[in-house]
Amino acid sequence: MRSRFRPCIDLHDGKVKQIIGGTLSEAAPESLKTNFVSSQSAGEFARLYRSNNLEGGHVIKLGPGNDAAASDALASWPGGLQIGGGINDKNAQEWLDAGASKVIVTSYLFPDARFSLKRLEALSHAVGKERLVVDESCRKRGDAWFVAMNKWQEMTDLEVSRESLDMLSKHCSEFLIHAADVEGLCQGIDEALVNKLGEWVAIPCTYAGGAKSIDDLDLVDRLSGGKVDLTYGSSLDIFGGSLVVFDELVAHNNL
C-alpha cells in the first residue's frame, strides 16, 4: 500500500478555481480569497486527468451555478471522477447517471448541523455503499477535529475519530477529508490529522489541504502508512502554482 496523488476540480461560479477554504462564506462573500481562476474548462481538466489515468479524483461544486461545468467534467471522463457539493437523496442518482463514479456527501447528513445516521443509511441504500463517499472535511477545535459543513463555515457535532470513521465506513466505500484550516494556504499539511487518519481509517481515504511540495506525498505515505492519498491544489502548476509540477506527480504515481 502506497499513498498516491489524486486530482481535483474545484468549481465556483461555474469556473475552475483554487480558493482559500476558510474564506468561503455566503454570509460574507467579500471575504473570499481566490488563489487561481482558470481560463480552461472543467472538461479540459477532466480530459487531462483521463489522459494520465488519474482515477479517483473529485469534482467539488462550491455553491450554486456549477452544474453545467460539473456535467462537462463528468461527460469528459465518464466513470473517472467523483462529484460532491449539494449531493442529497434526490439528486445523487442523477449525478451517477451523468457519469460520476461515486457521489460525495457532507451537508445533507447534518440537518441543523447534527449528524443523521438515518439519512446516511437511506442514501447508502439508494445509491449503494460502493458508490458513496463521505466527506468528513473538518476544522480543529482544541485537540480534536470536527466536521465542518456549508463550505466549511458551519461546525457540526461530529468529531473525526476512530469511532466515527468506523461507524461511517459501514455505509460508504471511501472518505474525503479536507483540512479546512490549512486549505489553499500552501503552508504544509496538517501532519497530526494525517497521522491519525492513518491509524483510524479502514477504507480508502483522500486528504486535501496545505500540500506545498512533491515531498508531501512521501510525508503522507510515511505518516499514514500508505493508507491515505493526497490532493494538491493551489501549489500545483496547472492551478497557477509554482511549487509542485503536475507531470512529476503523475510520474510519482507511475513508479
Rank of each mutant, 00 (worst) to 15 (best):
L109V: 06
R47W: 08
D181S: 04
C205E: 14
D190Y: 00
L185M: 09
L223K: 01
V160Q: 06
A46N: 09
E174M: 14
S242V: 12
D143P: 01
Q18C: 08
A202L: 12
L168F: 08
Q153T: 06
D13L: 15
I104H: 02
K17R: 15
A192D: 13
F246K: 01
E55Q: 14
S124Q: 07
E26Y: 12
V194Y: 04
E174G: 10
D10K: 02
H252N: 10
N91F: 04
I87M: 10
V220D: 01
N254S: 15
R114G: 00
P7M: 06
V220K: 01
F246V: 00
D215E: 14
G86M: 02
F115D: 07
R139Q: 02
D237W: 04
D166H: 15
G21W: 01
S224C: 09
K196N: 15
A113S: 09
E121H: 11
E183P: 05
M155A: 09
G43A: 11
L223C: 06
L158V: 07
G99P: 10
A211G: 04
F115G: 08
D13E: 15
G80T: 12
G209M: 02
I189P: 08
R6F: 06
A192Y: 09
W95M: 06
L217V: 00
A75H: 12
R2N: 14
K170S: 14
N254P: 04
L193W: 05
T206Q: 07
P7G: 06
K151G: 04
H252T: 07
F246A: 00
L168E: 07
A122S: 11
C205D: 14
M155Y: 03
A75W: 06
I189H: 03
S137M: 03
V160H: 08
E44G: 10
R131T: 12
A202R: 15
I83Q: 01
L249V: 03
T23H: 06
M167D: 07
F246S: 01
S173F: 12
N35G: 07
E30H: 13
G21K: 00
W95L: 06
L168S: 03
F239E: 07
N195M: 09
H178E: 00
M149T: 12
A113H: 05
